[in-house]
Write a protein that binds this DNA or RNA. Sequence first.
RNA 1: CGGGAAGUAGCCUAGCGGCUAAGGCGUCAGGUUUGGGACCUGAAGAUCGCGGGUUCGAUCCCCGCCUUCCCGACCA
Length: 488
Amino acid sequence: MADKITPRAVDYSQWYIDIVLNAKLADYSPVKGSMVIRPRGYAIWERIQAEMDRRFKETGHENAYFPLLIPMSFLQKEAEHVEGFKPELAVVTHAGGEELDEPYCIRPTSETIIWAMYKNWIQSWRDLPLLYNQWANVMRWEKRTRLFLRTSEFLWQEGHTAHETKEEAEEEALRMIEVYRSVVEETLCVPVLMGRKSEAEKFAGAVHTLSIEAMMQDKKALQAGTSHFLGQNFAKAFEVQFQNREGKLDWVWATSWGTSTRLVGAVIMTHSDDKGLVLPPSLAADQLVIVPILRNDTKAMVLEYCEKLLGELKAAGIRARLDSDDSQSTGWKFAEWEMRGVPIRLEVGPKDIAAGHVMMARRDTGEKLAVQAAAVVATAKETLAAIQKNLFERAKKFRDDNTHTITDYEGMKAFFGLAAEDSAGTAAAKGGFAEALWCGDPVCEKKLKTETKATIRCMPLDRQTGIDGKCALCGAPAKHRAIFARAY
RNA sequence: CGGGAAGUAGCCUAGCGGCUAAGGCGUCAGGUUUGGGACCUGAAGAUCGCGGGUUCGAUCCCCGCCUUCCCGACCA
């Protein structure tokens, strides 16, 4: 029947769009570059959000909310910051039928307005640390948008913390990127590399930026979260000083960190296949669906059996549902639930009931096997756990299989291909992650980007020892070990 | 923001300077079915993306705009 999903091998971009649209996760809106997140997509975000929020609270953070509109002059206080965001600002010039004395921009991020407030709230070391987070929408006027991955308006959380010392702030930035790593790997089943950004890739206004980087199925990198050590840059821009334990005035040390609805895109791209969405059980609104095989003569009996089974599954804490709709054929329902990404499907027909078992199909592997009636609940629980584990392992294997050590510039060009002969857009694209030594010179990085489109995604924190060799780009003595890739 | 492509019912597509814009999927009603995207009958559903122009007449030709997709530039 209708091939609703373009296969990955034909057109990876189109495949992704087909999944998002057909699984009803999101839709285009009448507003350029802005999407509507539909209930099935929002449900995924809510689960990510819940897990993140729980861990923020566990690490001592509190939620707050700051205004959507930011006076333009605030942005201008931090030179590098305004320079970085200027091209993507949306600005409000009129309100209440009059032109405003000073235009407001719609927040692209909230450092400036938050630090304008921190100035009022911080006087003494006793006021520190300040560990705030906010869940909000932000707007960055992007030239080129993609559902979930890059839209003009998106949902995110942004943490903004203030500290007494440099060490404390650096620890915080590291603590939060580690929180991100654990949520993304454990809850989203997306393996990531955790590392430091190069100067060229860091946040505008940060001293340094840490990020987690994932590999999508087309071997391109996706930044899944960032945590910034802001030094005293914003404290100085907003004149936030405090009296330290010695009674002297000092500038406050800062961090900020964020993750967004882009994570939903990361989950989709990492796990899904040509049949549709594949979701980790931890994020699936429906973890299991029972599809009864309905025949006129046995319908009542089968449904009764399924209702009872449904009750048992729910009692065991499994998010289960029964698809008793008899206006659709069984085959249609199989395909539909697969497209929606439900991790486990149970097929229950008169023959199964007579044989004392039900059929259990796994979304991740496609395996289908008979499970004895008495063991269904326990097997379902085990299988959900197995799927959660398998998705991570499978994605990790894919990433590792597509990560190679490269030692020279010719090797880089061969690995990524030249920018001009771009094969992106198909799953057969060249490249992957190139692990290579780097001298630290932005000129090298720029040259590679121009010629191959590959950039430094991060310098993994756990791979900076034993660096003894030459920069793979220029041959000068290396200072860092970096991961290079084409990125979203 | 530059180059290319597209926009006809919820979705996919046909069409043609001219009579009532055609078909498939889906939807709704009824019936028959249901172990991998079933079938029959009937029904509803279109400002042909928006605006202007050419013309006796425009969904079709021309111009402008909007939106999406691909490529490029840009990019937390």
